[in-house]
Design a protein around this nucleic acid. Structure first.
Length: 220
DNA sequence: TAGTATCC
DNA sequence: TCGT
């Protein structure tokens, strides 16, 4: 029997190519974070113990549906004053938790596989999605230096990632991201509009009804 | 990047 | 305008 090797692959580990190209400078690394997912998730729990999940408020005064926290030298924050990176967690008045080695190593390895050698992120935004929550189309443009890529790690429930172009009006590609998938975008696509479609219901073996996303940036 | 109205 |  020729296909025995594929019979037991879980649904989120389809026999797709390891690397898929989305655009110039943008790739999906299928399953790149799967092997270390348990370590990554344990590290998320440690971070959340010190920097709890919170729903940030946009400059327009609306509460975001996705819960967030950060680790690293600086963290992305949004409030009535706007979007920015801050070395201090406004909830605790303390520095954000250190970025774990598991995070740094995964981010650097994924970036290198995508053609961005030497990626050393100083910020990791951690997003928690429950079914029904979404992130509408936006650009990551609060960083000081756009030469470094963005590295985005998907854990838990699958999501539809929206990857657009340089103009908000550009029709986004819809990319299904499963547990362990990593997206890297940089260079020509560094400022591409992107977002996440409303999360579908589901129950993940490790996370239950949750999706957790790690987004690594070089903010300063 | 304040605050609000409105729409895809 | 990383929101509804």
């Amino acid at each position: 029997m020729t296909f025995d090797l594929f019979d037991d692959l879980p649904e989120d580990s389809a026999a797709t190519p390891a690397i898929e190209s989305l655009a110039d400078g943008a790739v999906v690394l299928r399953g790149a974070a799967r092997a270390n997912a348990d370590v990554l998730l344990a590290d998320v729990q440690t971070i959340v113990a010190r920097a709890p999940w919170r729903h940030m408020v946009t400059p327009g005064g609306l509460k975001m549906s996705v819960a967030m926290t950060n680790c690293g030298a600086c963290g992305w924050v949004s409030d009535a004053r706007g979007y920015r990176y801050d070395a201090v967690d406004p909830l605790s008045g303390q520095a954000w938790p250190d970025m774990p080695a598991s995070f740094r190593e995964l981010a650097a390895s994924a970036a290198a596989q995508a053609g961005f050698a030497g990626f050393a992120p100083d910020a990791c935004l951690i997003n928690r999605y429950v079914p029904g929550t979404r992130l509408s189309l936006h650009q990551d443009r609060d960083e000081r230096d756009f030469t470094a890529p963005i590295v985005s790690v998907s854990l838990g429930l699958p999501a539809v990632f929206l990857f657009g172009g340089m103009r908000r009006a550009d029709k986004p590609q819809r990319i299904r991201l499963a547990h362990g998938d990593v997206v890297v975008w940089g260079g020509p696509s560094r400022l591409a509009f992107h977002g996440v479609a409303p999360l579908a219901d589901g129950d993940h073996p490790l996370l239950g009804p949750l999706r957790i996303n790690l987004t690594f940036r070089k903010a300063r």
